[in-house]
Design a protein around this nucleic acid. Structure first.
Lengths: 276, 276
DNA sequence: CGAGCCTTTGACTTATATCAAGCGCCGTGG
DNA sequence: CCACGGCGCTTGATATAAGTCAAAGGCTCG
């Protein structure tokens, strides 16, 4: 199985702290098992980033989950053409949704972080398909697609939550579209860095003023709608201006104020999100 | 109240057939009243473009609807900053969702056509706001935002439908992001024309091989992420190549095959959509 | 030790933006 | 009824942001 090299220069002595799913989880939950535990022991729920659920709902979610799954970095979690596929919650690791044109041009639609629901659109949308690929090793909770309707019927709250998640994801794509359509290269980079940092922050993943940052410049180019070379030059410039720093697979915002101003990004506080 | 001039050149003798909500509706339902009728007489449901609902659900929807509303072309249906606002179904006319940067750059996120649900995201998303503006005169069915949860509880089917609508809209934004990020100007235009034509077609709005097309080139530039001038030059070229024609506020696809090839657009058949 | 990724950089090309001006149609007001 | 102003479309000239091409270096893995 293809396993991409770790991004950015990484000195030997820090290799051990890479961002594979295993290492990632180890930071919060020591032990060898990367697989999600039973729902009531879910690490994510303990972060306070998610809305609490009743014992009843928790039990249903647990029973609704048919299995858990680990996939290595770079693997395709959902194919761009094939409909069907499962419904997942990303438990650990990074992934992304994307679309490609037939000549290979690729656009990343948004990044998926722990707690995000994956594959909802396949259930609905008008054939407009997208693929999903794992950036790092990932672990997933698997739900049956055809049980979704039962969920809505038996637990309207959870149905409401799913709509919430769908609307939130749309909001992220909206932001991205604003970037791709109307921001210049530097503004796009600033926006992306702020956006990802804040999402990770909410998940409690800031450590020593930095977050894990497993994506490479090709990913960044593909989400921003820029070429790889131009992305590189732009990021280099921002880094040299002291706005941010990416090193050893981690991201520091050295001057968040300036980044925020550059991106014309005004944050509302992130609310707690539902978690399935 | 500001009332924009009709787009593109329009000779005097065709002015009467403009695309105000009233004229629009008159084409299908003669009579002076532009306001939506009772739900069971809803013109939209008769098009076959929407999924049928039970009598029970229909009655609930009717009672859920607090009022109807007409707004003139150019008016703001939802403010970009202010949260709250109502929940609407667009009954007649065109509108669009947009975001702006503080220096005025505007990105249209997607167009809203009859049957589309409006304002769902305001209920949920993390502060990431967008505005909504009417392109033509519009008429709307108004629903109370705080009744949404009750809807989910009492009619899980309808909750499911709302999720469907949210996912479908996200799919449209996805497509748009692919365009803005990875397609060149001509490809973007081709994509947009195909996309809008097909949506209108599904609503039964094709007449004599053309559809009403009330948006101007500034709208098109703003949804495609291009400048007005470049949009004009690109569209001019495509029109001269015989791919399409826009005249008297109507759009013809003169060479759909070529447009489709140019846009790298492959259509799955549009499914019936829910209608609230 | 060699191969493969990923990053970096310089030189050059090109797509798109910006600036500026003119035209036609329409609605308005004298 | 005519003149004027506004809006939307069109076009040419010029500027610039971003893309493309090419090559090299660092790390890591095998």
């Amino acid at each position: 199985m293809y396993r991409p090299a770790l991004p950015w220069t990484m000195s030997k002595d820090t290799v051990a702290q890479n961002f594979s799913s295993k290492a990632y989880m180890d930071t919060l939950q020591p032990g060898p098992a990367p697989s999600p535990p039973p729902c009531k022991a879910c690490r994510l729920r303990k972060t306070g980033a998610f809305t609490p659920v009743s014992a009843d709902e928790m039990a249903f979610i647990e029973s609704f989950r048919t299995s858990t799954l680990n996939r290595p970095a770079g693997s395709t979690l959902m194919h761009e053409q094939k409909p069907g596929g499962k419904l997942f919650t990303l438990y650990a690791g990074w992934a992304f949704r994307y679309k490609t044109l037939s000549d290979g041009r690729r656009q990343i639609l948004n990044f998926l972080l722990p707690g995000d629901l994956i594959g909802l659109q396949q259930e609905f949308s008008d054939g407009a398909m997208h693929g999903i690929e794992a950036v790092t090793d990932v672990s997933l909770c698997v739900f049956p697609r055809d049980g979704l309707w039962e969920l809505f019927r038996r637990y309207p709250n959870l149905g409401y939550d799913i709509t919430w998640l769908a609307a939130r994801e749309e909001g992220m794509v909206d932001d991205n579209l604003l970037s791709a359509g109307r921001r210049n290269a530097a503004e796009r980079v600033a926006m992306l860095l702020m956006h990802l940092y804040r999402r990770l922050e909410r998940l409690g993943l800031v450590q020593d003023g930095s977050v894990e940052f497993p994506i490479n410049q090709q990913h960044i180019a593909d989400i921003l709608g820029l070429s790889l070379v131009h992305t590189n030059k732009t990021m280099r410039r921002l880094q040299q201006l002291g706005l941010h720093e990416i090193r050893n697979g981690r991201l520091w915002l050295r001057n968040p104020k300036a980044l925020q101003r550059l991106a014309d990004y005004y944050d509302a506080p992130l609310r707690r999100a539902p978690l399935l």
